[in-house]
Design a protein around this nucleic acid. Structure first.
Lengths: 101, 101
DNA sequence: ACAATATATGTTGTAATGCTACATAGATAG
DNA sequence: CTATCTATGTAGCATTACAACATATATTGT
């Protein structure tokens, strides 16, 4: 797994997952891990950064078995940023395709 | 243009271009610039690194008008690395697609 | 009772790579 | 003789993913 390929794209994957509904950190780690390797520490750093930039709000939910979960919820700003980032990504993939075909 | 998206992928674009035939640095800058923005300094650093890793050999060609051109030629190692990187990229794009669809 | 495992969040320091800005130089056009 | 195009190169900075570590709760196995 080429770590460099993920630069900037992991952010899009996280945002796109949250666009489907609120999720907590550990849950995101597991979902993304189904497709590609990702260190859990990386996810938490990314989540904190995106929260600092006001792309999400968070709330805690207690659980019967295990520690509390911190859920992330996209803000309006987060939603429009997700759309921009996604279309930027699709454009980029097209550009690369034309260069490597 | 999201600079992070290019991390690692610019390398693939350069290698894939050279797989089509020898090119010199300035020529690569122009070809790649048709699809995406790229600083010429970035290209020269990348070319030096890939040469240090023995993915290319180089040769100088004098020109009638202007400075000499340094051509880059893929080695066998460079060709197989290009193939690996390309299939790694295509796999990655598929993984991202499934996460952001 | 105790250890191992799964769940869950977080921090520190490092490595890789693209960007900006700058430097150099030959040849040609105005 | 200045500006522009062609052509190559370097120095320092910013961003982001990784490895390794730290903390804590709850359950399962022995």
């Amino acid at each position: 797994m080429n770590a460099q390929f993920k630069k900037g794209v992991l952010e899009l994957c996280v945002l796109a997952q949250l666009a489907k509904g609120d999720k907590y950190g550990y849950e995101l780690t597991e979902t993304i891990s189904e497709e590609m390797s990702v260190a859990s520490g990386t996810l938490y750093l990314l989540l904190r950064r995106l929260k600092d930039e006001n792309y999400f709000e968070t709330y805690l939910v207690e659980t019967a078995g295990g520690p509390a979960r911190k859920y992330y919820k996209l803000t309006d700003k987060g939603m429009s940023y997700t759309q921009e980032l996604k279309s930027g990504w699709l454009e980029f993939v097209g550009q690369v395709d034309r260069l490597i075909q």
